[in-house]
Every structure is written in structure tokens, then in C-alpha cells.
């Protein structure tokens, strides 16, 4: 099992699957499944940030949404640490766990109800979780808005009166209103301008320190993930292919897919002649993944074994650096800093 050392574990995910049925014809017969998330297991420590990266369609967002039950998982077990015990997270229990696990959504423009004032958007979870006193709620909203860098004069406004960055701050205030221990951040900055991205990332960083938050940070931008994460999980076609501490993973990747992803990060130094690994072909359809290792059709190191046998995610050297590759130990892959300097 992929057990990280150090701080106590907050979230355990075991064998999480989300398969979307594909229906066809007049009677909507199920002809197959899109395996958006396919047998994913990992754990998150209290207070850390686990970054999840992968290209579009790899299932990272679906995974984040299934953990907070906004997408109903097909199977798998999710447990949240609670006062020394474990709470099962499923569709029945989730409504009472919303105060412990929250989510910040990707698109700040569409995720706020356009007909609600900011104070009501942020206060609504409080009301739903038993804070009956209206004045008390609004006081809490004021504190929260201040915490995310907005003022109490924003309380009576409507979402359309704010910029993208401000809206995302409102989304963050809303997520924090119930004092959650875990916050799933579903690409929280990908809809924002780069300059605003930095502000929001720093805000998330500050809030984590202030409130002792744990983040599951889903993103496709590798530099963002490198900046914010303590550990990183790399997903490909619904599975985690590599997971480990951020620096070892970025410097010494062990999976060929991670290597290819990292080679795509632009280097600000014009003298660096990085080797761009261009992956051949498209991502295979998650409805019909290739046999064996899912990555083998695009992997330049693939062998016969990769075509037949699916590799398990394993900790090879006891350093909490997990990788799902048959050749992890034989390959010498290039990370971000081991690029040749001309």
C-alpha cells in the first residue's frame, strides 16, 4: 500500500473507479464504459498539498469530484480521518461531511449563482450546517472575505460585478466557510490570467498555513503544481503512473510519461537546449485503453512485456516514490534540472 510517512493521514482513497457508461441506439443500450478513473489508490497527509497532474481527459478532475461525491464513484472506498477514527465518505454520509471536505471549482465565472449576493453565496453553507443566527453568519462572512483579501463592502454585490480573480477568492471563501480540513482544488487557477494566478496561488498558500488546510490540488500546469505541492501524483488514462515528493519527482522522474510531461515545461533560460520529447499519436480513448501498460503505444522505451502486462504502482526503493513502470529501475530518465546546458 502507498503509505506516506510523516504526518498523520487525513484521507485514504482505495480502488477508486468512475466508469461512465456509453449508450447507443434507440433503447440506450450500454455498449461500453469510459474508464475516467480506473483503480486509483492514494493517501493524503494532514497539512500537505498533493498535486495531481496529467493532460486533459486523464481523469484528474473526475477523481477530485468523486472524492467529494459530486460525481458518484462507481466503486472504491474513501475514508476521512475524524477525531482519531475513520469516516466513510459516500453519497449517504457526504452531506454531513461537507464541513470537513470542500472544493474550489475550476471556473469562477460559472460556479457562482448569478442571482445571489456574495454574502449569501458565502453564508449559505453556514446556514445549511446549522448556523441559524443571520448576524452571526454575516460576521463570519466578513471575516472570511477579509481572509481572502476582499472587504466587507463587497458583501452586498452580485458575482457579475467582480473580476475572475476576485470571483475565485469568493469561491475560496465559500469553500473555507465551514472550516474544512481537506480542500479539493479543481484547477483553481487555470481560468485566470497568469498575473492573477500567482496571487491566488499565494493566497492558497497563506490560507493553508493560517488554517492548517490540506489540499488535493488538481492542475494541468506543471509549474503551478511544482510551486504549490509537497507531493505530486501523475495521472494517465485514469490511473496514477507516478507519485512522490515534488523535488525527486521533478528532478528524477521514473516514469517515461512523467519525463515527457516535464520536457514540455518551457525553460526561461534561452541557453538551455532541452530535449523535447514529442509523444507519438493521441491519448488512446479511455473507453478502449490499450492492453498491458496504458502508455506503451506512445512510450519510446516500450518492450514486449509492456504490451502484455499492466505494471503495478510500486515503491521501488522505499523512498515513497511510487511508479507504475516495468522498466523503472533500468531507465535513466531526464528531469527538469538534468537537462543538458549548452
Amino acid at each position: 500500500m502507498t503509505t506516506p510517512k510523516g504526518d498523520p493521514i487525513l484521507l485514504k482513497v482505495e480502488g477508486l473507479r468512475k466508469h461512465f457508461p456509453i449508450t447507443k441506439g434507440l433503447f440506450r443500450r450500454t455498449v461500453g464504459y469510459v474508464k475516467a478513473v480506473d483503480d486509483v489508490s492514494f493517501q493524503v497527509r494532514r497539512g500537505e498539498t498533493l498535486g495531481v497532474v496529467g493532460e486533459s481527459g486523464c481523469g484528474k478532475t473526475t477523481m477530485g469530484l468523486s472524492i467529494v461525491q459530486l460525481v458518484q464513484p462507481t466503486s472504491g472506498r474513501i475514508q476521512l480521518s475524524d477525531n482519531g477514527g475513520w469516516m466513510e465518505v459516500n453519497s449517504k454520509t457526504i452531506r454531513h461531511l461537507r464541513d470537513k471536505m470542500q472544493i474550489v471549482f475550476q471556473d469562477p465565472f460559472s460556479s457562482l449563482d448569478p442571482r445571489m449576493r456574495i454574502r449569501d453565496i458565502v453564508a449559505e453553507p453556514l446556514q445549511a450546517h446549522g448556523m441559524k443566527n443571520r448576524r452571526q453568519r454575516y460576521e463570519r462572512v466578513e471575516t472570511l472575505l477579509e481572509a481572502v483579501g476582499l472587504g466587507s463592502h463587497h458583501m452586498n454585490r452580485f458575482p457579475h460585478e467582480f473580476s475572475g480573480g476576485q470571483r475565485q477568492r469568493i469561491g475560496i471563501a465559500r469553500a473555507l466557510s465551514l472550516n474544512p480540513s481537506l480542500v479539493v482544488c479543481d484547477e483553481p487557477v487555470s481560468a485566470l490570467d497568469v498575473s492573477v494566478q500567482a496571487q491566488v496561488l499565494n493566497l492558497l498558500d497563506d490560507l493553508q498555513k493560517e488554517f492548517g488546510l490540506t489540499y488535493l490540488f488538481v492542475a494541468h500546469d506543471l509549474s503551478v503544481v511544482q510551486h504549490i505541492s509537497d507531493r505530486v501524483a501523475v495521472m494517465y488514462l485514469g490511473r496514477i503512473v507516478e507519485m512522490g515528493e515534488v523535488d525527486p519527482l521533478f528532478l528524477y522522474p521514473k516514469h517515461p510519461y512523467t519525463e515527457a510531461l516535464l520536457s514540455a515545461i518551457p525553460d526561461p533560460d534561452p541557453d538551455v537546449v532541452g530535449e523535447q520529447i514529442i509523444l507519438q499519436g493521441d491519448v488512446p480513448s479511455p473507453a478502449d485503453p490499450p492492453p498491458g501498460c496504458h502508455f506503451h503505444p506512445r512510450c519510446r522505451y516500450a518492450t514486449e512485456r509492456c504490451r502484455q502486462e499492466a505494471p503495478e504502482l510500486a515503491d521501488l526503493d522505499g523512498t515513497e516514490h511510487f511508479v507504475a513502470c516495468h522498466h523503472a529501475q533500468d531507465l535513466d530518465l531526464t528531469g527538469v534540472s538534468t537537462r543538458a546546458t549548452a
Partner: peptide, 26 residues
């Protein structure tokens, strides 16, 4: 199918509140 309806669910509101306060009003 709007995102803000998903947000409403994430707040832990009951389906009835989601339907009446967020879906129907909009």
C-alpha cells in the same frame, strides 16, 4: 447542469433547497 448548481451541492444543501433556491430561480 450549471456549475453553480454543483457548487450548491458542494455546500451541503439538500436537493430540495438546490432545486428551489438555485435551479428554479435561475
Amino acid at each position: 447542469n450549471k456549475d453553480y448548481v454543483r457548487t450548491a451541492r458542494a455546500k451541503g444543501l439538500t436537493e430540495k433547497v438546490v432545486a428551489n433556491r438555485h435551479i428554479r430561480r435561475n
